[in-house]
Nucleic acid binder design. Structure first.
Lengths: 139, 139
DNA sequence: TATTGTTATACTCTATAACTATA
DNA sequence: TATAGTTATAGAGTATAACAATA
């Protein structure tokens, strides 16, 4: 059973890259949670607050403050939902989309650990990870 | 170049397992940062505060509070270092070591994504990740 | 009655700056 | 002068509980 060893190696990689998100976030004057929200908001696709809370995997009460701060910077907007007046949806603004694009680009840059692998190893890694991850997944 | 794709898949796995550490921490009534500290402290091996800060990759001023709370629960102790009276070292207690053992065991349990891979895939994954990770690494 | 979003509250992590005691 | 640890401070994330508006 190599599952434990494989997992411990993944954890190690995870630990090695632990500062990556905070560092990229900081360079864009964002927090990690704010990055998650921006990343989750595709331009032109409104998302209810409740869905944002699920994406962040945190209590809904926290989303109020996180969205407040993003809205104050003009990176997203709150709107009323037509079908249910209890619901408020969040939409990324043009300015927010520009920040999001930079964010996504920086996150996508592979770290040294991945870059140092040979093309063949990278292909194999892709194949295995595609098998490992559940089929239904959202960025 | 599959590096970007491989990295995006690793990020996805990372995202999928994002709640793992907080969840395990919470079950042991610890924060994520406190878990990192306990994990870093091998029984019988004192570590200077400064090294703890490096392990957490945060400013040294934060370590004071984190260690304070662990010390208040009797999970570790502060001691004076013999060679340099400015330095204080941290040592895990017997009680702390017991909590640490449970913590490490739970962290080590492979998640579904890894467990669903075949033994051959797991072996290959191990081999690739060992190549990816720098040789000098500490848990 | 149940759900959505908010507010109030309390705790922890985080960085920066200033301080002390050593070196 | 420089370093190790602390304190003070401010800002952000987190959970729980209570609340108003709506379903």
């Amino acid at each position: 059973m190599r599952a434990r060893e494989a997992w411990s190696l993944v954890l190690e990689l995870l630990l090695a890259e632990r500062r990556r998100v905070p560092a990229i976030a900081g360079a864009l004057r964002l927090s990690a949670a704010q990055c998650h929200v921006l990343r989750h908001l595709e331009p032109g696709k409104p998302v209810p607050m409740r869905r944002v809370a699920e994406a962040l995997a945190c209590d809904a009460s926290n989303v109020t403050g996180i969205v407040d701060r993003l809205e104050a910077r003009g990176l997203l907007e709150r709107r009323a939902a037509a079908h249910d007046r209890r619901v408020r949806v969040v939409v990324i603004t043009r300015r927010g989309a520009a920040v999001r694009a930079r964010l996504v680009a920086r996150l996508a840059a592979p770290p040294p650990a991945i870059a140092r692998l040979s093309p063949a190893e990278q292909r194999t890694l892709c194949a295995i990870l595609r098998r490992a991850l559940p089929p239904s997944r959202s960025g």
